[in-house]
Design a protein around this nucleic acid. Structure first.
Length: 432
RNA sequence: GCUGGGAUCGCCUAGUGGUAGGGCGGCAGCCUGCUAAGCUGUUUGGCUAGAAAUGGCCUUCCCGAGUUCGAUUCUCGGUCCCAGCGCCA
């Protein structure tokens, strides 16, 4: 569990990290609340200790068939009142402390570049060359081939939804299976997770304080209330925004043995995102949508091994793009752009010929013990329990990846070449 | 959704209105030459004293509420698991 004690023990690195992040996270308030609540907690413990010894005296007297003194019982009654008062007082602080702890940004790794926003992320690697320098927009290419219908999707579901048709829908399946097969060959275990999660587990997997806005919540329709043949939706359920979250929940509240680590999962699921605040950005096409498939790596390691694993995972993701022959670069995300959960993050960005820009396709994060402190993921090392490290990285964000393939592999005659790696999955080498 | 049974440490399991016990596994140590066993200790989380070695206390029997001086035990409400019925792509 994430505790104020953990904060006190790591206070110097936390403060330093907040500064680098340009974060306005109220560390001072948290420490102040913690001190107050610890004081009350101590008083409460003393009262409870008194009650326990008093109760014991009563018990022993009864055992020996002695008469129990009325004044003794009255005194214990008073103590009980005092306990209740202190408990109430403690509760006042606890809610705010819990919220602050759950949403506290992770301590950054030293190799994270300093910077205030995405403009200061640093490029650390480039691979390959663009198959073509310029191209039409993916929407135009796909519409001419009658493979994409955004208008009807907008009519029946709203903006940022889509219908894929024919070979494009097939390409979606091909990419999913291709990505899964590559990861299985690397020794990852395939996971098909639940697409809805309870709030408790969502809070532990990501900083809901900021993220909740981007999630879809599932609730009981008014029409269904009281229906006899339907299951009630008691808890708040959230549609997952990535399979990382249910995979993190899968290992939650576990103590692993060192020989079980690392645990390597590859998840496949649809992802649902409200994309709040994205108005005006990428409004055309299927680059930024409310629903998309994603193949994702999720790994649990010991504390010593996570940085090697981090490098392994970005290489896994790169392997997909190399096999697909897509020109990309790797970016080390800077302190001001990294988000709350990760201690270090690489993005893989693919060259898009329609705009000449590199666009994000993969996000690879070492979350160190942020998730494991909140989801209670530990391992047993020589009898000592230690919080594990968790990592995640995109393998393939399918809809986005399709945009990259369609543009990079488009031909001047309006057709699209199928990348060699996908031909066995498509059963053809050309679309259109 | 209905009826019945259940939930106790990493796993298995006893127990009762009055300090939660045992086995397995793990860890530390002891003993021992022999394919492995035996013995001892330890194995929820937190607060606090101390430089440390250690100590004091609280908490923990699925969750929440209630009764009680005291609840793992009794009452009520829920969650999940198992069996059966119902419903269902």
């Amino acid at each position: 569990m994430i505790t104020t004690r953990y904060v006190r023990e790591h206070i110097d690195e936390i403060n330093e990290s907040m500064k680098k992040r340009h974060s306005d996270y109220p560390v001072a308030e948290l420490l102040d609340l913690d001190e107050k609540s610890r004081k009350i907690s101590t008083e409460l413990q003393e009262l409870r200790a008194k009650r326990n010894t008093g109760s014991l005296e009563v018990a022993q007297a009864k055992k020996q068939n002695k008469v129990v003194d009325d004044s003794k019982v009255a005194e214990l009654s008073q103590i009980k009142k005092g306990i209740e008062e202190k408990e109430e007082e403690l509760l006042k602080y606890q809610g705010r402390i819990d919220y602050l702890l759950m949403n506290m940004p992770n301590v950054l790794h030293d190799s994270v570049p300093y910077g205030k926003d995405s403009g200061e992320n640093t490029e650390i690697k480039k691979w390959g060359t663009p198959r073509r320098k310029t191209s039409q927009n993916h929407v135009d290419i796909l519409k001419k081939l009658n493979l994409l219908d955004l208008e009807t999707a907008a009519k029946v579901s709203g903006a940022r939804f889509y219908y894929l048709k024919g070979d494009l829908a097939l390409l979606e399946q091909a990419l999913i299976r291709f990505a899964i097969d590559v990861m299985i060959s690397k020794g990852y275990t395939l996971i098909s997770p639940p697409f809805m999660l309870k709030k408790k587990y969502y809070e532990g997997a990501t900083a809901l304080g900021d993220f909740e806005e981007a999630l879809y919540k599932v609730s009981e329709p008014k029409e269904a209330q009281g229906a006899q043949n339907l299951e009630k939706i008691e808890d708040e359920l959230f549609l997952i925004s990535t399979s990382e979250h249910p995979m993190a929940a899968l290992v939650a509240e576990n103590v692993f043995s060192t020989r079980d680590l690392p645990i390597k999962y590859v998840g496949i699921s649809p992802c649902f995102r409200r994309e709040a605040g994205a108005h005006g950005k990428d409004t055309k096409g299927i680059f930024r949508v409310h629903q998309f498939y994603k193949v994702e790596q999720f790994v649990v390691t010991g504390q010593e091994e996570s940085w090697d694993m981090f490098e392994e995972m970005i290489k896994n993701s790169e392997d997909i793009f190399q096999k697909l022959g897509l020109h990309y670069r790797i970016v080390n995300i800077c302190t001001g752009d990294i988000g709350i959960v990760a201690a270090k993050k690489y993005d893989l960005e693919v060259y898009m010929p329609s705009s000449g820009e590199y666009r994000e396709m993969v996000s690879c994060s070492n979350c160190t013990d942020w998730q494991s402190l909140r989801l209670d993921i530990k391992y047993d090392e020589k009898g000592k329990r230690t919080y594990a490290h968790t990592l995640n990285s995109t393998v393939s964000a399918i809809e986005r990846l399709m945009v990259a393939i369609v543009e990079n592999y488009s031909n001047d005659d309006g057709t699209i070449t199928v990348p060699d790696a996908l031909v066995p999955y498509m059963g053809k080498n050309r679309i259109g």
